[in-house]
Design a protein around this nucleic acid. Sequence first.
DNA 1: TTTTTAATTAGATAAATGTCTAATTATCTA
DNA 2: TAGATAATTAGACATTTATCTAATTAAAAA
Lengths: 91, 91
Amino acid sequence: MKQQAVFKALADPSRRRILKLLRGGSKTAGELAEAFNFSAASLSHHFAILKAAELVRTERRGQFIVYSLNTSVLEDVSSLLLDLFGREEKQ
Amino acid sequence: MKQQAVFKALADPSRRRILKLLRGGSKTAGELAEAFNFSAASLSHHFAILKAAELVRTERRGQFIVYSLNTSVLEDVSSLLLDLFGREEKQ
DNA sequence: TTTTTAATTAGATAAATGTCTAATTATCTA
DNA sequence: TAGATAATTAGACATTTATCTAATTAAAAA
């Protein structure tokens, strides 16, 4: 996991909102776009950042691209946080 | 807790490094500065951001200002993450 | 095959961020 | 009180980031 990519990705409120929207289940780029006033291009930009951080997975379904949460990263991020705040015993 | 402030604060690698340095115990601004090549002013800037996010506490001890980890935020951040990645049942 | 729809990529630009030096504030010491 | 040390704040500047429009890619439909 790319630590910096993950933290950068989470730093933007729009991207966190995208993640929240995906909690309810997979959604196409267009469905996600409905929740925002941005252009599709701007949303794509955010998608790319979330994907680079491996926070979301994508799957093409015909003309649609379906986004879904990569929940396995939750564990990774959790240990990142423990690494930041935990006692120093490890490392 | 200010969610945006916390995520912004964690987005910078230098600030994460500061947090890591503080795991070993409280340190003065000067002691922390030794670990970086930045000017004291730049470090102060980072300290201010970490403080605004309540990730660190400060205490003046004479001419020194001592920084320490505010570990209670770990719990807050954890629930933020659950909020982002968890199932939608809550809210 | 041509046209339409979904989405991304490219390129430009304004706003935010990280760094610097200089000036200021706060405390200690002689 | 005056000078020295620790740290922060102010202001400037370069880099990064988020947004936009326009162009491109990919698949579906006519």
